[in-house]
Amino acid sequence: MTESVSPYTDRRQRHAADMMGMYLFLGTEIMLFGGLFAAMALTRLQHPAEYVAHSRELHLWIGAWNTVILLTSSLFAALAVHAAREGAGRAAARWLGATAAFGLGFLALKATEYTLEFREGLLPVTGGDGALSEPVQRLFMHLYLVSTGLHAVHLTIGICVVTGLAWRLRRAESARAIPVEITGLYWHLIDVVWVFLYPVLYLAR
């Protein structure tokens, strides 16, 4: 294999390109979730009363606590970026660790919520859908499961990336800010998607 040639002439150019690439990627993520939000909007327009009724069956407070946890994790991510910009590698690693830990907390609470819904017969999966009697109720729970599931997949990827980055920086005296900034952007997007999912699903009651 031939040595790959850097297309960049200097570091600043590379920095700008990396940031722009990440912003574009986040744009594609917004369009991806946008399709799901369109489906949810249409369902609510076509079945307003049922949509509101089924929204009431979700665990409002679990969702609320998860919102708090995820927003806090985003704060830690922002602090990690701040530390990395200051060149404090180890501090950045610690904040990233906290970010990942809160992300895991979110997933644990989400798993608990799924388990509760499964026991209540509200989850549209084999064995867990005993209480789903109406088609729109099933559709609502399907949309809930697909959108929160897709969000959880993104969060899982985020946790892996953040943990890996924290591991790399654990003994670093200094840090290149770019990887932390880019990872932070991704983390904030996961957060923002949840900030929209929560009202659309839970607060439509």
Partner: peptide, 24 residues
């Protein structure tokens, strides 16, 4: 960049409809 993700989610919904009876 802007259009392809919408196709991705649409195809995913079709697959979910065939596999799990999503119904959207």
């Amino acid at each position: 960049v802007l259009a392809t993700p919408v196709l991705a989610i649409t195809l995913a919904l079709i697959a979910a409809e065939r596999l799990f009876g999503l119904g959207v």
